[in-house]
Design a binder for these strands. Sequence first.
RNA 1: UCCCCGGUAGCUCAGCGGUAGAGCGGGUGGCUGUUAACCACUAGGUCGCAGGUUCGAAUCCUGCCCGGGGAGCCA
Length: 511
Amino acid sequence: MEKVQQVYISQFPEYEGKEVLLKGWVANRRTTKNVVFVVFRDGTGFTQLVIDKQLAGEEAYKEADKLGLETAIEVKGKVVRDERQIGGFEVHVSEFKVIGESEDYPIAKKEHGIDFLLDHRHLWLRHRRPWATMRIRNEVVFAIHKFFQERGFLQLDAPIFTANACEGTTTLFETDFFGQPAYLSQSGQLYGEAMALACNKIYVFGPTFRAEKSKTRRHLAEFWMVEPEMAFYDLDMTMDLMEEFIKYLISQVLKNRQFELSLLERNTTILESSASKPYPRITYDEAVEIIKGTRKVNGRSSLDVLKEDLAKTQEEIKKLEAEEKSLEKQLGTPGLGEKKKARLQGQLGKVRERLHKLRERAKNIPLWIEQAENFPYGEDFGGAHETVLTRLFDTPIMVYKWPREIKAFYMKPFEDDPNFVKGVDMLAPEGYGEIIGGGERETDLNALLDQIKKHHLPEEAFQWYLDLRRYGSVPHSGFGLGLERFIAWMGGLHHVREAIPFPRYYGRLTP
RNA sequence: UCCCCGGUAGCUCAGCGGUAGAGCGGGUGGCUGUUAACCACUAGGUCGCAGGUUCGAAUCCUGCCCGGGGAGCCA
């Protein structure tokens, strides 16, 4: 092969009309009489290769026609503008050679179930949706570091092996640490507090582990959390920081990852409002009133919104049921052509799938209404309550001033209202739920000892933590952002397991 | 641990008491600057496992296993 410059697909705008060398993989292939079209990827993007008999020769055409999906190839050709293609360019190939063969690639050119795809996660990562998602993940991670570094925070790591449970509630993974039981960290917070009192403003950014057998779209057994901790910060300063932080992350994704968002077919309306509009700050008491429907938001009550929703859902169900019947009748007609029959069956499948989802929804809404109306004051919100609450807003909301009993032992009570603590949760819109939990920490040694006893936690294990209150205790605060939940919200992903390269959750340890 | 839904071809699914089906993917041939291309032919199955009901079970019943969603817990 003659020497030409090797470039990446991402550099195409600088190389229009030029002869270049590309190295990558065959993502898809279509053959026509004189031309083979290859959808080609090199990790930086996707483009179409055109292997024409005239230009590349009869041999190249025949060889290209045999290329299996995901064959690694080296290509020489000219970058040509073509507005019909993704990225706006295609490559007219003059020569190519195979670097690595690929036969019977397991992921077919069609829809697959999530379980099959996750069994092939190591290969699935090569495809468009995961590719776009991973680029958004990287954008978010980079933006997190930029945000904190620009504000003088130090990134410091908390240990992963710990001797005790942080908050004493969740189930932890137990391991053997040279003959002693040790647990995988469920939060870096307590260590973050120690580091903040040493370096003022710090953030812990690492993996965390929870051994709950959670089977929901919001849970993983291993996930990444960003936990800033700031000395001399009170609750209000913390809420200001949280809002500024989330707005910054969203704006960076919107600015730099439009193409990836479009590949995910993400409607960005709510992301845009969330990047600019102020986030409502609501006390727990107010949130309860909103959930119960006794307090209106912008003239709307949560229960009315749900009832409207139910009516709309039922209407759509009726429409689809009629469509289902009509399709079934058409399918029952004798003498249908195979082609026509297949098409009808395809349509019927889609209608049924949509019906299934709507029926599920129609079944759930009355339950939500009931749960909302009968919400027992003083308890934590469940998924249904969060949905009811966040549905009324087009930005994240911050719920603060929580009843002391339902929050962790280290939370600081309000001086003028000691039954409530200075904790705050940020709830994302569009059903993505809690993305941040945090607040101001207890500073008083005796108050903390009291809480440790009330929560039945082992006092000895917390001696080092209590030292932070013995020697120069100061007001301080912090919060934790669930990275995968945030990414799932950005990308409009169905499940947090799509937001991490190799998810770990109950029932999934490989690949 | 509990509740709901599911397990049929490599993949996505239909069939729900009477001879196991379609699309995609594989193979062969045709057509075509194609966009998950298209058309024809072809190969491909212990209907999750075990037991029961029945003349007859993918279909009904029971138990178990696996998966999905939710509760709990939380980021």
